[in-house]
Simulated assay, not measured.
Amino acid sequence: MEMFRFAHPDYLYALVIIPILVILFWLSRRSRRKALERFGQMETLEYLMPNVSKSRPVFKFIIWLFTLSSIIFALSRPQFGSKLKTIKREGVELIIALDVSNSMMAEDIQPNRLERAKRAISRLVDNLSDDKIGLIVFAGDAYTQLPITTDYPSAKLFLNAVNTEIVPRQGTAIGAAIELATNSFSPQFEGNKAIVVITDGENHEDDAIGAATAAAEKGIIVHTIGMGLPQGGPIPIYRNGQKDYRKDKEGNVVITKLNETMLQQVSAAGKGIYVRANNAQVGLNTLFNEIDKMEEAEMESLVYSEYEEQYQWFIALALLLILVDFMTLERKNKYLKNIKLFGR
């Protein structure tokens, strides 16, 4: 099976000029006809101009449209992939589990914990090359936001859509996120796998340590990043454009604090490392350096290694059409006018 592609597909946008030229040609023909009608009836004028052809200019215009189209296709360099080969790439598979609970809106890390984490993940994606990445979001439940992929632009697109409303049920189910991530790696991938949990560590839902232990037993490293400062901060809420803070049943402002002990225990159970974020750095680069030290497994993929150029066919067609246009006169040939090749 051959693979077809355009080496420079941007040139195809020039085809938009074709319908524009058709409209301009039609307007020109209509304007010319109206101008002639001012001098008399068309039947009389046609009798007075026996060598003028109505169809030849149209035919020549169509030739030039096809000529222009052929040149545009030639510039876009159509190619057929002729040979397949297997290439080996080195990389690891990385799944980031991002906490999107309301506590991640605390502003002890500027501008807030969630936004700072998203910016750090975006910078991490910019630095990836052969690694695969996936994204899981969690609060009271865990969901796959992006299946594991090497499509980095899509990863950033899905990341931009993350907010605290993306998971309906509130909470911090770190264990569920680790379990989902553990089952989300490529089944056929036998290389190194890592999970990075980014959260403030306020886990009230499940056994995160047990989930990290189970992942480690499968050869999956679990790292954690603590988002938040030890002293914590209030959780802002906005009503009618006014900023307020979440309060408990007694009316006291809720202070969300980083549960550093929990995250240290999770990373230890997952045989990974723990990094605390602050206003200077989040820690993803530190963890990625650790991931880079892992033995990178080879990932195989089939690619077309050779492409055969096809633009010469369109160049040949354009030259042929130019020759046909050159041999086609606007007016009827007095020797060939009885041959009704173009009608009238």
Rank of each mutant, 00 (worst) to 15 (best):
F39P: 05
S101M: 15
A161F: 07
L48Y: 06
V266Y: 07
A268R: 08
E190N: 15
R119D: 15
L302R: 13
I221H: 04
S69M: 15
N102I: 04
I63T: 01
P9L: 12
S28R: 15
R30T: 11
I291T: 03
R123G: 08
L48G: 09
R29F: 08
N112S: 13
R32V: 12
Q231Y: 10
A297F: 02
G270C: 00
Q265M: 06
M105L: 15
A117G: 09
P50T: 09
M299T: 01
S103K: 14
N192A: 15
Y143H: 09
I237S: 02
S31V: 06
M105K: 14
I174M: 03
K132Q: 12
K54S: 14
I235F: 02
Q264A: 09
F59N: 00
R56E: 04
P50N: 13
E93C: 13
G283N: 01
A173W: 03
Q170K: 11
R32H: 01
N333K: 09
T172F: 07
D207M: 06
S82D: 14
A297D: 06
I198Q: 12
F66S: 01
I166W: 10
K257M: 11
N240R: 14
M294R: 13
Q265K: 12
R33L: 15
D141Y: 12
A7C: 15
P168A: 10
L287H: 03
E250G: 02
T67D: 12
V92E: 05
F342I: 00
L320V: 00
G140S: 14
M1H: 04
L302M: 11
S55T: 05
L157F: 05
H8L: 10
I63Y: 00
L258N: 00
N102P: 10
M104N: 07
G191I: 12
L323V: 06
Q188C: 05
A176M: 06
L124Q: 04
V22A: 13
L319C: 09
E217W: 02
K83G: 10
E300T: 04
I225N: 01
R29N: 05
A181H: 10
A142C: 09
R33P: 03
G272H: 04
I255W: 07
Q312M: 12
G232M: 02
D126A: 05
Q242L: 08
G40W: 09
T172P: 03
K249S: 12
E306D: 13
I20L: 07
G210P: 00
H204Y: 14
V196T: 11
I225R: 05
E250Y: 00
Y47K: 14
D248K: 07
F314C: 10
F185T: 01
S122Y: 14
T44P: 04
E308S: 13
E93T: 05
W313D: 04
D151L: 01
